[in-house]
Amino acid sequence: MVSVRNIASDGAIQTRPERWGTKVRGIVRRFARMAPLGAIAAVFLLVLILIALFAPQLAPYDPIQTDYAATQQAPTRQHLLGTDHLGRDVLSRIIFGARVTLLVSLASVVLAVAIGLIWGVVSAYAGNRVDMISQRMLEVLMSFPALILAMLLMVSLGSGLPTLVIAIGIAQVPLATRITRSVVLTVKERAFVEAARCGGATSGRIMLRHVTPQCVAPMLVVATVNLGAAIFAEAALSFLGVGVPPPTPSWGSMLGGVLAQSFNPPWWLVLFPGLAIASTVMAANLFGDGLRDFLDPRVRQR
């Protein structure tokens, strides 16, 4: 337990355990100083998470409620961002669309990092044949353009929210595995691993207790750097009609639905969902860059 010393008024040195809150606040403050853009991006993402959580309270209309009396209306005071060809409120659909975007991108990134961590640690620690075979398997996965691989998996597994997470996650596994593997290859030669082995620790225990913790920081960076790509992938797949099945609103499928209607769509149906995607991808990218600078100042971008 980390503790700080306080000198009381009478000069006695008191020790009290530092509270979690103070520690977190310190980290946040340092992050904001080192990566101000990343901090702004983090605030944006937090606000987006709140919007997604409280979507039913925030959205002015039901996102899937059609209203044939008010189809394709330009932005007005009743419908701030207009309505689509079925009279559904665009603002409400964007607010609810944040749920799909965040859920799918976060879950797929976590899945990719979890698989990559296990795969990378086992492959690098086992070495020899196991490592060689797993490297060849990774090469196969990396031979697909990510979006094409995700499309193939969507066709194979059928459409739906869980399969979307799996498809996007698997397309990101190679990067996470490669980075874990390279970290483990250097870590396993270090003295503390040798010491643990001399102490009689089993391979499983060394992998779990000594090697894996060293991979946490790099994986955190991989996860945030991949977040932008995952948001983009979800949008692109939904745009192509192989993402979340309708009527669940998603930013990508809003754009795709417009395309299916006509090639000269109303501007508000094109502009607003696209802005939502672009600003979220940008926030995720900036946060990822900031976190990388923060955790590994050596590779800091100038």
């Binding site: 983009f232 692109a236 696209g274």
Partner: peptide
């Protein structure tokens, strides 16, 4: 431009 999806 890194954040703008090409299809949009």
């Amino acid at each position: 431009f890194m954040a703008i999806p090409s299809f949009w």
